[in-house]
Amino acid sequence: MEKKRAKWGLIFCLPFILTFLVFQLYPIIYSFYLSLTFQENSRNFVFVGFDNYKDLINDKTFWKSVGNTWKIWLMNFIPQLIFGLVLAILLTQYKIKGAGFFRAVFYLPNLITVASMGVLFLALFDWQTGSVNNALVDLAILKEKVNWMSSPSFAQGITAFIQWLMWFGYSSILLTAGIAAIPEEVIESSVIDGANAWKRLTKITLPLLKPTMLYVMVTSLIGGMQIFDIPMTLTKGSGEPSKSLMTMVLYLYNMAFKNNDLPYGATISYGIFVIIIFFSLIFFKVIYGKEEKSA
């Protein structure tokens, strides 16, 4: 009976195993192989070792794209975490009426495709026909229309805002689940002991939220380092103005598919992978490092 169960278990696992091998493991291995080659033409790849990685280290455009990506992510993630945490606390610990309705409303932007949001904001801030310019001019706030997307800082800010708008509701739901998982006995005991709302937040809620916050940080980092849709939509792949929206994945896309340099595109992808792994480990160490030392 045990052998039969093991046999059927393996059969049911085969679709996942085959899918993983064909669509995930093979592309990962093949991409690494490509990163070690030079593309002579569409079919011939010559092995060059780690030359592409040496070029990547000295590639100023790549490091600019790294800086752009980090800046956009931080401008999005810090407000996202603050708003998500505040909303989670208000909707959970203060028993606000209609909490379920508010959670659904805050989550709604996440259901819209990223490209659609990019097209919407591109239309809103179009300097000739955009609704924002027209409204500000009609209200006499502006004397003449402004080309908003010609400013690198504004372009990065609007990209970060779109990311924040789409994801802070999702983060608040995760943080709400983390707060709801805190035993009520712990909260009640702290109230009996005389702890005020601030002490309950800093001494109980936030420490017990560490696993959830780590998950939110790491998943946000992974998504933020791979931001592509919004810069692609806003700039049609150019990364302008002044390459301020040239993110790492957009640079990868341009090198691999516009310039037809697949080996260098694969090299960039592994560069992104190393950056994500490195900073994910740092986040884990920062959150749990002190506890490990004290133990």
Rank of each mutant, 00 (worst) to 15 (best):
T233P: 00
R200A: 08
L201A: 14
T212N: 08
G224Q: 08
R200W: 06
S242N: 15
I222Q: 13
P211N: 13
Y215R: 01
K236R: 10
S244Q: 07
A180E: 12
L174S: 03
Q163W: 04
F168E: 00
S244V: 06
W167F: 06
I192N: 14
I158A: 04
M246V: 05
G223E: 06
I192G: 13
K243Q: 06
L250H: 05
V216C: 08
F154G: 06
L221T: 11
Y170K: 03
V216D: 02
T219F: 06
S244A: 15
I222F: 13
G224Y: 03
G194D: 10
E240M: 07
I227H: 02
F228K: 06
L206W: 12
L206Y: 14
W198P: 11
Y251P: 01
L206I: 15
L208R: 12
L175I: 12
G157V: 00
W164Q: 01
G223D: 07
P183Y: 09
G169S: 07
L206M: 15
G237L: 03
T212I: 07
T202P: 11
A181N: 11
S172M: 11
L206N: 12
A177V: 10
M166N: 05
Y215P: 03
S242W: 14
Y215E: 01
I192P: 10
F154R: 07
L175Y: 04
L208E: 09
A197S: 15
G223W: 06
W198C: 14
K210G: 12
